[in-house]
């Protein structure tokens, strides 16, 4: 296998991973636009979706694909419940409290998963197939092609939802200005819950997509969540397209660094990108947040 073939393979893998980060990052974008807060539990919704899928599959009574869909739906419901119980009461509190609450919720998810399923990675049924498609000398895993394709379809659907549907437009109005939207007769509470439902569903989708490749483990929300978070910041925190591009870039950089620099410090890549972006270009690559307010 030639050098360029290796490169093609790494790029394909990077794009697939990036697509997964992008899905999770979209959840960050939605919550940030709705509440102005980083939802630190987003990665753990991904983990929750993954384990819900695993649990449903293991019951053996539900067909595999039905189980996956059900897992995503249950995660959405979980998002709504968490919003009602923990986040909604803090909507008017200092945003610092809201932020801390999302961290606390993430920790609870993680620890509950650890108690129920243990700390070791669990195998997830590989419904994506094992095949390899030859492109020139490079072998592209079918798994990665599936992941990238499904994620792309989801992103397109989401964009359509926000641009074309009435509910999507209402959600955009709420994210622009909650008070004005309320005065316009939009049910902002319902909207907030829908936002959480969709963002946790996005996370859960990312979870069930990547689980066949990486197994399911209780800390996966943390490691994937932080990479997705870097993507979200790189993309400028307020744009869907930005988050997608940010995700793909992080996926690519990380996998290229893993092959060409050192696997040991592969984990550091997303942090370094994150800090570099925040310190030198706080609006991200595509953000239009304008100058930060002083004070």
């Amino acid at each position: 296998m030639g050098r360029s073939d290796l490169f093609v393979q790494v790029v394909a893998q990077g794009l697939a991973m990036g697509a997964v980060y992008a899905l999770i990052a979209l959840g960050y974008v939605m919550i940030f636009k709705a509440v102005g807060v980083f939802n630190f539990a987003q990665g753990d919704f991904m983990m929750a979706g993954c384990f819900l899928g695993l649990w449903l599959v293991s019951t053996g009574t539900i067909p595999l694909f039905a189980a996956l869909v059900l897992a995503v739906l249950l995660s959405a419901a979980l998002g709504v419940i968490v919003e009602i119980v923990a986040f909604h009461p803090l909507l008017e509190s200092p945003s610092r409290s809201y932020l801390m609450c999302t961290i606390a919720v993430g920790i609870i998810f993680r620890e509950v998963a650890k108690m129920r399923f243990g700390a070791d990675p669990l195998r997830f049924p590989n419904y994506l197939g094992h095949g390899v498609i030859k492109v020139g000398g490079a072998g592209l895993s079918v798994q990665y092609i599936w992941i990238t394709t499904v994620a792309a379809v989801v992103v397109v659907l989401l964009l359509w939802f926000f641009k074309r549907t009435k509910v999507g437009k209402a959600m955009r109005a709420v994210s622009e200005d909650r008070e004005v939207a309320r005065l316009m007769g939009i049910d902002t509470d319902f909207n907030m819950r829908l936002t959480y439902a969709i963002s946790s569903a996005l996370g859960a989708m990312a979870g069930v997509l990547i689980a066949p490749v990486f197994f399911a483990f209780s800390e996966m929300g943390r490691s994937f969540g932080l990479r997705a978070f870097s993507s979200f910041v790189l993309g400028g925190t307020d744009s869907i397209v930005g988050a997608v591009i940010g995700g793909l870039l992080i996926g690519l950089m990380e996998n290229l660094a893993g092959v060409y620099i050192s696997t040991q410090y592969k984990d550091v890549v997303s942090f370094v990108v994150l800090i570099a972006v925040l310190v030198w270009r706080p609006t991200g690559l595509f953000g239009e947040r304008g100058e930060q307010r002083a004070g």
Partner: peptide, 21 residues
Amino acid sequence: FADFRLILNAVVTIILLIKAP
């Protein structure tokens, strides 16, 4: 409960944040 420390910590913190900031 084994390993209950982090959960308890998180739950207590959430309750305090909401009820007694």
